[in-house]
Simulated assay, not measured.
Amino acid sequence: MRVGVPIFLFLAAAGFHTALTASLESAEKEDTFVGLEQLSDLQKRDQEEFEAAQMSEAVQDENTEEENDTQEEDMNRDGNVEADQHESESDEDVDGMRQKREHLEANVEEADETTNLAEVE
């Protein structure tokens, strides 16, 4: 019986060691699997965030282009208004100059008539 107790203790320790080793290996595999699963989830989340960011940038780019187009249209419209104003100012200038010329011509004619009358007398 004296020999049986140390053998029993040795077998018990060996069994405990084997069970502990198997448990640790199982835990490592599980951690690795969970780690890969978590990594996969993180990659999926990152990919979704990346796609969302790209879509957001595309929408912002589209809005910027629309704003630029609107600004260009406004500038063209303002330019057309200015051109119309300039044109109407030019027309007014031409009308004013025409009136001055007619007035001067009338004055010249009156002066000619006055000179002719003076010569006749």
Rank of each mutant, 00 (worst) to 15 (best):
Leu117Glu: 14
Arg45Ser: 05
Val94His: 09
Gln38Leu: 10
Gln38Ile: 11
Met75Tyr: 07
Asn76Phe: 08
Lys44Met: 09
Asp93Arg: 14
Glu67Ala: 04
Gln85Asp: 09
Ala27Cys: 09
Ala27Arg: 15
Glu72Asp: 02
Ser56Met: 06
Leu104Arg: 13
Val120Arg: 15
Asp41Lys: 15
Glu73Arg: 08
Phe10Trp: 11
Glu92Trp: 06
Glu113Tyr: 11
Gln85Ser: 07
Asp69His: 02
Thr115Tyr: 15
Pro6Thr: 07
Asp112Gln: 15
Phe50Val: 06
His103Met: 10
Phe50Glu: 14
Ala14Arg: 04
Glu57Arg: 01
Glu109Val: 03
Asn80Cys: 05
Glu37Gln: 06
Thr64Gly: 01
Ala27Trp: 14
Ala14Ser: 02
Phe16Tyr: 15
Ala27Met: 15
Leu24Asp: 07
Glu110Gln: 12
Leu36Phe: 08
Asn68Pro: 00
Glu65Lys: 00
Ala52Cys: 02
Val94Met: 09
Phe10Pro: 04
Val59Ile: 07
Thr21Tyr: 11
Glu109Ile: 01
Thr115Gln: 15
Gly15Ser: 12
Lys44Phe: 07
Met1Gly: 00
Thr114Pro: 00
Met55Lys: 14
Ile7Ala: 04
His86Gln: 11
Ala53Phe: 05
Ser26Ile: 03
Val59Lys: 02
Phe8Leu: 06
Leu20Ile: 10
Val81Phe: 03
Asp93Met: 11
Val81Lys: 05
Asn116Val: 09
Thr114Lys: 13
Gly35Glu: 07
Glu87Ala: 07
Ala118Thr: 03
Glu72Gln: 04
Ala58Phe: 02
Ala118Gly: 09
Thr70Gly: 03
Lys44Val: 12
Asp31Ser: 10
Ser90Gln: 15
Asp41Asn: 13
Leu20Gln: 13
Val94Gly: 01
Met97Pro: 01
Gly35Thr: 14
Ala22Leu: 10
Val3Glu: 12
Val59Met: 04
Arg98Thr: 07
Glu67Leu: 01
Arg98Pro: 03
Lys44Asn: 12
Ala111Phe: 13
Phe8Asn: 06
Glu28Asp: 05
Leu39Ile: 10
His17Ala: 13
Leu24Lys: 13
Glu121Tyr: 12
Asp46His: 11
Asp78Tyr: 08
Glu102Pro: 02
Ala22Trp: 13
Glu121Gln: 13
